[in-house]
Design a protein around this nucleic acid. Structure first.
Length: 447
RNA sequence: UCCGGUGUAGCUCAAUGGCAGAGCGGGUGGCUGUUAACCACUAGGCUGUAGGUUCGAGUCCUACCACCGGAGCCA
């Protein structure tokens, strides 16, 4: 057999007719001749022998090239390969316990697509600013790769969860004429001869959709122009927001709990390998089982005051307060009945405690904080009107929303789950900026 | 916006107010089983910017810029 290494597309069409496979499939092709396309992840050698770690997005495999087996020219070409050079290799998959993963590719033919110049991200440590400046390249690193694979699994699992329950996906607009909740700062854009704002929530639109379809959800980006500088904040982040007609707070909480269980189970089932790469303590995730503790705001305050005496009853929970509460439980905890004063205008009030909202926040374990906020919506037209006035919101902007209470109003509830915070928790990452492909923060708009 | 911190080689970091340094990465050479290989040699600098103190400033002072961590706000 003629063994040679092919140069830059010199003999296209004369390749050995081998199967094109992904590295993840390599184990199924032991002893067979295959072609793999990918990038040089790392290279080492021993004089007349090259070891090239090649990754293709599905895995990493060691490619072995012996000088005695190939031409001088071919060997030189492989010697010139640099980190992140792109190549296509044909060879035989063989078993070898010295290789990571237990098998390797004995190269017969290598096509060099591109020799990369000095790659900025070396296998050693780097600072966060440098890595974020190189985010477009950092995505190739194993941990970042694993995080985004898990992010995909979480998104897919949430959508499957709702789809399986008969929900309809109804996407909300990104451009909105006004604030949804009237609280946080919005990004303003020129919209022809008027102003438009980037959405901070699809919820109001989901309420309209729920009255048309019964069970709906939306999934999309949301924007907050807050000058927040913490590990929990981005200016652009993704939310999944279900809304269900005829649901009350209890049913809403059941829905949220079921979703979290479903997501965690799915990630444990399908993304073990990625959790391992991230060195995630999976026992923490395996502990996430039904039922989740459901505690009243007043109970939460007791827990908080025991450790933070300065907390003022009636205030919203701060980051450290959330950590105090969640540290008492090994699974997500649901806090209900916050003071209505700290919540949005559309929250329905409790009949037993008129100063409390029929709302729920879900705090992730291990100090990851709020991942879900939701509750039952005010369904009475007159009460909603007075709330809009109390909050000094422009009634005109909410006329369409008020129509939902005019024409066949029903009890309904829903929630929003922040994808990045959920990914951060499940992946055990300290900072949410690693959980989105290209993060946007107060100080970062590139790449 | 407030509080604290850091800016030195491509990267990660050293350097009592007294010659600008190491490891990694890059380059050259060596090695037939490497796993972040190893060995030898080598190139690489307006010490964030602008002022100031000093015989002398990477080091001390002032302002600014950039980023990091935290707070507030929130998902």
């Amino acid at each position: 057999m003629i063994i040679h290494i092919q140069g830059k597309s010199k003999k296209r069409g004369h390749h050995l007719m081998a199967n094109n496979i992904t590295i993840s499939q390599a184990a199924q092709y032991l002893g067979q001749e295959v072609t793999i396309s990918g990038w040089v992840y790392n290279k080492t050698g021993k004089g007349k022998l090259h070891f090239i770690m090649v990754r293709d997005g599905t895995g990493v495999i060691q490619v072995v090239i012996f000088k005695g087996n190939v031409t001088e020219e071919a060997f030189e070409k492989c010697a010139a390969l640099t980190q992140e050079s792109s190549i296509r290799i044909t060879g035989v998959i063989s078993e070898d316990l010295r290789a990571k993963g237990g098998h390797e590719l004995q190269a017969k033919e290598v096509e060099v697509l591109n020799i990369a110049p000095e790659y900025p991200i070396s296998p050693k440590e780097h600072g966060i600013e440098f890595l974020m400046d190189n985010r477009h390249l950092w995505l190739r690193s194993s941990k970042q790769h694993a995080i985004l694979k898990i992010r995909h699994e979480i998104i897919k699992a949430s959508r499957d969860y709702f789809d399986n329950l008969g929900f309809t996906l109804v996407d909300a607009p990104i451009f909105t004429p006004s604030a949804c909740e009237g609280t946080s700062n919005l990004f303003e854009t020129d919209y022809f001869d008027t102003k438009a704002y980037l959405t901070q929530s699809g919820q109001l639109y989901m309420e309209a959709a729920a009255m048309a379809f019964g069970k709906v959800y939306c999934f999309g980006p949301t924007f907050r122009a807050e000058k927040s500088k913490t590990r929990r904040h981005l200016t652009e982040f993704w939310m999944i927001e279900p809304e269900v007609a005829f649901f009350d707070l209890q049913q809403d909480m059941d829905l949220a709990e079921g979703m979290i269980i479903y997501i965690v189970d799915r990630v444990l089932e399908k993304r073990r390998q990625e959790l391992e790469i991230l060195e995630r303590d999976v026992s923490k995730l395996e502990a996430v089982k039904t039922p989740f503790p459901r505690i009243h705001y007043d109970e939460a305050v007791k827990l908080i005051k025991a450790e933070n005496p300065e907390f003022i009853d009636g205030d919203d929970l701060g980051g450290t307060d959330e950590t105090i509460v969640s540290s008492h439980f090994d699974r997500p905890v649901m806090i209900t009945h916050y003071p209505a004063a700290v919540k949005a205008f559309y929250m329905k009030r409790s009949a037993q405690q008129p100063d409390r909202a029929l709302c729920v926040d879900v705090l992730a374990p291990e100090g990851y904080g709020e991942i879900i906020g939701g509750g039952q919506r005010e369904d009475d037209l007159e009460i909603l009107l007075s709330r809009i006035r109390e909050h000094n919101l422009p009634q005109e902007a909410f006329n369409w929303y008020l129509d939902l209470r005019k024409y066949g109003t029903v009890p309904h509830a829903g929630f929003g789950m922040g994808i990045e915070r959920t990914v951060a928790w499940i992946c055990g990452r300290p900072h949410i900026r690693e959980t989105i492909p290209f993060p946007r923060t107060m100080y970062r708009l590139t790449p």
